[in-house]
């Protein structure tokens, strides 16, 4: 059966968009956290813990981590498809990346809501 190259649900465009949107979100979060660290010159447990006790900080951090995971997925997919030619090896590597990213997501949920 002949398949059109466009019948992959425009995956390239979606990847492109995910990479850009997540990059912008992460840039804003990183600059915000950097600004906080600069203002809060003496960082101790109390201040750090207080920062992550706020609901909005948990949400912002979760959004950041979610963007990071999607960004990492697209990035690793690109690297693997460029350099790893054997299908089975690439499949296994991508599976490992996928499962790690999913577990990172749940780990970060536990960390953030454990505060």
């Amino acid at each position: 059966m002949v398949k059109s190259v466009l019948s992959v649900n425009h995956q390239g465009l979606t990847d492109w968009l995910i990479q850009r949107v997540s990059a912008i979100v992460m840039t804003i979060y990183s600059l915000g956290l950097l600004a906080y660290l600069v203002v809060q010159s003496e960082m101790d447990y109390t201040a750090w813990h207080a920062l992550f006790s706020h609901g909005w900080m948990k949400l912002a951090t979760l959004l950041f981590i979610l963007c990071l995971l999607f960004h990492a997925w697209v990035g690793m997919w690109t690297v693997f498809t460029d350099y790893i030619k054997p299908f089975l090896l690439r499949f296994i590597l991508q599976l490992i990346v996928f499962l790690s990213l999913v577990s990172f997501f749940f780990a970060s949920l536990l960390i953030l809501w454990g505060v």
Binding site: Y45, W48, H49, F52, L68, A72, S100, F104, A107, S108, I111, G114, V115
Partner: peptide, 13 residues
């Protein structure tokens, strides 16, 4: 990433 998550967990526990 695993290392960073581990550090984040430890820093907040």
């Amino acid at each position: 990433l695993p290392f960073m998550l581990w550090a984040l967990e430890l820093s907040l526990s």
